[in-house]
Write a protein that binds this DNA or RNA. Structure first.
Lengths: 227, 227
DNA sequence: CGCTTTTTGTGATTCCATTCACATCAATTC
DNA sequence: GAATTGATGTGAATGGAATCACAAAAAGCG
C-alpha cells in the first residue's frame, strides 16, 4: 500500500471513446460505414490520428472501403469488455454519490452499480432501486458480485481508509471523486476526478483568454492611433 | 460557432492544483516552508517537475531556502484569480446538476454558483439556498453577476442548443457534463467531463491488468514445471 | 571573508505522442 | 485484366513534455 497514484488514462483511449460515441450516433442515423476522415472531422482530430489510434488498439478496416460501423462497434465492445456485465460498488451516498447512483448512463454501457455503501445508518435503506448498505457488508457484496471496480464519493477525510478496505477485499480499480491523492500499490488503477479543479481550470483559461483579447485590442488601438 | 472543441487542460496546470492542495494541507499542519522534493514526494512527481512547473507559471523560491508556503499559496491565488469571486451559473437541475449545486467545495474556492436554470417549471423554486430559474432569465442573471463560466448538466439532446444560448449571452468557459462534443468558436473554453468514460477507462485498465497478471502467473507456472 | 553545502532555475537531452509520407491493398473503370 | 483511383496502415520525422545536469545563488561555518 505504498506510492501515490495519479490518474494515468491514455489520451488514445479517451479518443477511442470519442470515436465510439460518434459511431453510435452515426449508426442511429442509419449510416453503415465510415472513413477515417469522416470520424476525424466529427471528433475534431486528424484522420491520421484516427488510424493511428485504431492501429494501437488493433482495430482494422478495409483498404479503400473504410470501416464498417457495426464491425467497428463490435470490435470496441470486445476490447472494452462491454459484452460481459461489469459490476460496480459505490461508496458514499452524499449529494454526489446519490446522483451517481441514479446516473442511468452507466447501465446503458453495461456498468451496473450493484450496491452502494454509507456509514450513515439513516441512509441505509432502498433508494431508487439500488440498496444502501453499511460498510460491514462490503466484503460479502464484492465477493457475491465479483466486483473489481469501485466509485469513491466519500469525504476526503475518510477516503484513504475506505480505499485500504476496498483493496483488502479485492477491488482493483477506483474512480475517486474525493480531492485527495490516494496511496495504493501500483497494481491498483486509480482515476481521480476533481470537480473543483475541472471548474477552476476553465476559470483560469477564461481569465487568460480575456487578458489576451484585451492585449489584442490594445495593439489594435495603438495601431489606430499611430496611423 | 464552428469547430469541435476538445478539453485542453494542460497537465502542468493540473499538477499546480495538486501542489496547491498539498500546500494547503501542509499549512494546516503548521509547516511553513517546503523544498521541491518535499512537494514532489507528497504528490508523486519528481522534484525537477515541480520546479519546471513553477518556472512555467513564474513561481519562484529562494535558492537553498526552498519555498515559503504562505508566499506560494498567495502567488497561486493571484495566478488563479482566487482573490476575486468567480460567479458561475449551472444549467440543468437533474440528478447531477442538483448534486453539483450543493457541492460545497466550489464555494470554499471562491467559485459561487449564483443561480441554476432548468426548463422544468416544477424545479423552478428555491432549493438548498440556490434559486432555480427558467431559461428566460438567463441573460438577466449573467449580466447582473458578470458571469463568464457555466456548468452544463443538461441531457445531451439539448446541450448544443443551450451552449449556443450561453455563448450568445457572453459565457466564455464551460464545464460540460453532457456526453457530446460541443461546437463552439475557438475563443470559448470547453472542459468535457464524461463520467461514463472515466469509469469505463478504469474498467479497461483493470481487465488489462488482470490479463497481464494472469500471463505472469502462467509464466511462473511454466518455469516451475520446467525445473 | 572565502569555502562548502544545499537547493533553485533552466538550457540540453531524452522520450513519447502526434503528424507526415508513402507503400500497400482493394475497388472501379476502360 | 491492366491502369487508375482512393482508402488504409505504419515506419519516419517532428514537436512538445518530462527528465537530466549543471550553473547560480543563498546559507552556514571556520
Amino acid at each position: 500500500m505504498n506510492g501515490i497514484t495519479k490518474s494515468v488514462i491514455k489520451n488514445s483511449l479517451k479518443r477511442i471513446f470519442l470515436y465510439r460515441a460518434c459511431l453510435a450516433r452515426l449508426k442511429l442515423m442509419g449510416v453503415e460505414k465510415v472513413f477515417s476522415y469522416t470520424l476525424a472531422s466529427e471528433t475534431g482530430v486528424t484522420s491520421d490520428q484516427v488510424r493511428k489510434d485504431f492501429s494501437e488498439y488493433n482495430i482494422r478496416g478495409n483498404k479503400r472501403g473504410g470501416y464498417d460501423i457495426n464491425g467497428l462497434l463490435e470490435k470496441m465492445e470486445k476490447i472494452f469488455h462491454r459484452n460481459k456485465d461489469n459490476n460496480i460498488v459505490l461508496i458514499g451516498m452524499g449529494n454526489l454519490g446519490l446522483a451517481l447512483s441514479k446516473y442511468s448512463k452507466f447501465v446503458r454501457r453495461n456498468m451496473n452499480v450493484v450496491a452502494t455503501f454509507d456509514i450513515d445508518p439513516f441512509k441505509q435503506k432502498m433508494r431508487s432501486g439500488i440498496p444502501v448498505y453499511s460498510m460491514s457488508r462490503l466484503k460479502e457484496i464484492i465477493d457475491r458480485f465479483s466486483v473489481k471496480v469501485a466509485i469513491l464519493a466519500v469525504p476526503e477525510i475518510s477516503a484513504q481508509e475506505v480505499v485500504d478496505e476496498l483493496i483488502r477485499h479485492g477491488i482493483k480499480g477506483i474512480v475517486n471523486f474525493a480531492p485527495v491523492l490516494l496511496k495504493v500499490s501500483p497494481d491498483v488503477i486509480i482515476n481521480n476526478v476533481n470537480l473543483c479543479d475541472e471548474l477552476e481550470s476553465v476559470i483560469y483559461y477564461v481569465h487568460k483568454q480575456i487578458k489576451v483579447d484585451g492585449l489584442k485590442n490594445l495593439e489594435l488601438l495603438y495601431r489606430d492611433m499611430k496611423y
